[in-house]
Amino acid sequence: MKNGPLFLVGLFLSVLIAWSGIVLGSHAQLGRQTPFFDEGDGVAYPARQMGLAARGQLVYADLGCASCHTQQVRRPGFGNDQGRGWGERQSVARDYLFQTRPQLGASRFGPDLTNLGGRKPQPPTEEALYRFLYEGSPTHPPYAFLFENLPIAGEVSSLALKLSGTSAPASGRQIVPGERARTLVAYLRNLNTVYDYPESRPLPVEQKAPAKEEAKK
């Protein structure tokens, strides 16, 4: 360590190698990934997000939704994501191909949202999501600032929330989702990883399970 320049070069190389290995390594493996073309359907998956939903992801990101919600389903047998109805298969890199800024998240203080738009038995309706965002719940903050409190001029807006009780607006006024609320809800309703890619099928676990049962018998 007596040689100053050599020390600095050593430091630099250590970091360069780690960065190349981890970041460039992953990039080399996944950077050229293409959508999967299903010949039966004649469509490529995943689909690009539509304009409104793509803008909604920006709202999701700037509100920091990822601080409580993940968007990554773990494989069957690892955790309990399937038991919670968050998705039947694990998320794979291809699912995020067209997302400008994937929101994987690191906390599940709220539920995983990977497949919110495809929840069984019924995905939440547009209206339910608006109400939820406006009123909140005991476990979720209300984001009233995404909505506009407007006077009713002529007809009531078709988007106006049907509210009752304490959250209802004063008479002659209506609560209408603002642009950010509309894009966010479009995005949330669009969250769904529908297609089963070759790499996302949880084969090994399925094969193992019956083998064990047979052995027991």
């Binding site: 780690a18 960065w19 981890i22 970041v23 992953s26 990039h27 996944l30 950077g31 990934q33 890199a93 291809r94 995020y96 191909l97 997302q99 800024r101 994937p102 994987l104």
Partner: peptide, 12 residues
């Protein structure tokens, strides 16, 4: 970078 490679770079 594309997709989840961003998450890898951020973790690094």
């Amino acid at each position: 970078v594309r997709g989840v490679v961003q998450a890898v770079a951020a973790a690094w």
